[in-house]
Design a protein around this nucleic acid. Structure first.
Length: 219
DNA sequence: CCGCCGATCTTT
DNA sequence: AAGATCGGCGGG
């Protein structure tokens, strides 16, 4: 499937049509947005994955967020309009991607932590030759960027309108009623109380979720 | 499956 | 100086 086919009528009932998402979905608190983007599809130049794990980062009120110390050249996209892609470079070799939330001027984002491969699996394999199993193709924030070919060049792209080959769409699958909820991955002491915020959300039982829960909330 | 370690370079 | 990570290696 290609991006140009977004919204076209499916030929079979199994292939449901893809609908754009409303920007209003993102124009609010990332903690509310995060569980609602589960099961949406991320398209990048025709390669497609279903979002199965995310984390919320609440900007200037969240010590774990890149925006905690205010706006900088690196995190500027997080302060921009909602529904755009914030891509950052880390550890000297990896890219990670987020959906920008909140109204323009207020920082907030949902980190994409894992996808279930849907379309273009051969392309994903060629981009990630180290992956032994398909479940390793998109299980991790940097891995999914590699598999979908997402790098700094897509920072700021509009995921709602679809720009620079990337778009978020829905195939009608609702988010899980009871998402898996845990604390976030990769927090250090520097984050203080934010270490314990239950802001990681995942589709229960999905094999592509990046790691087991460090700590389970609710269930 | 789990834990440890090194890679690699931008950002503050 | 540390980082919203990953892959390889060794052990259970």
């Amino acid at each position: 499937m290609r991006e140009s086919e977004v919204g076209t009528t499916p030929e079979t009932e199994a292939a449901r049509s893809w609908a754009p998402v409303r920007r209003a979905l993102f124009g609010r608190d990332p903690v509310d947005v995060a569980p609602r983007v589960l099961n949406l599809l991320l398209v990048a130049d025709g390669v497609v994955g279903r979002i199965v794990e995310v984390e919320a980062y609440a900007g200037e009120r969240d010590a774990a967020s890149h925006a905690y110390h205010g706006k900088t050249p690196r995190n500027a996209t997080m302060f921009g309009p909602p529904g755009h892609l914030y891509v950052y470079f880390t550890y000297g070799m990896h890219f990670c991607s987020n959906i920008v939330c909140q109204e323009e001027g207020v920082a907030g984002a949902v980190l994409l932590r894992a996808l279930a491969p849907v379309t273009g699996i051969e392309v994903m394999r060629s981009r990630r030759p180290r992956a032994r199993r398909d479940r390793e193709l998109c299980a991790g924030p940097a891995r999914l960027c590699q598999a979908l070919g997402i790098d700094r060049g897509r920072d700021g792209a509009d995921l709602v309108a679809g720009s620079r080959g990337v778009q978020l769409v829905s195939d009608g699958t609702a988010p899980p009623r009871k998402p898996l909820v845990t604390t976030r991955i990769g927090m250090s002491d520097r984050c203080g109380a934010a270490i314990d915020y239950p802001w990681r959300f995942a589709v229960p039982g999905d094999e592509n979720v990046s790691r087991p829960a460090p700590r389970l909330i609710d269930t």
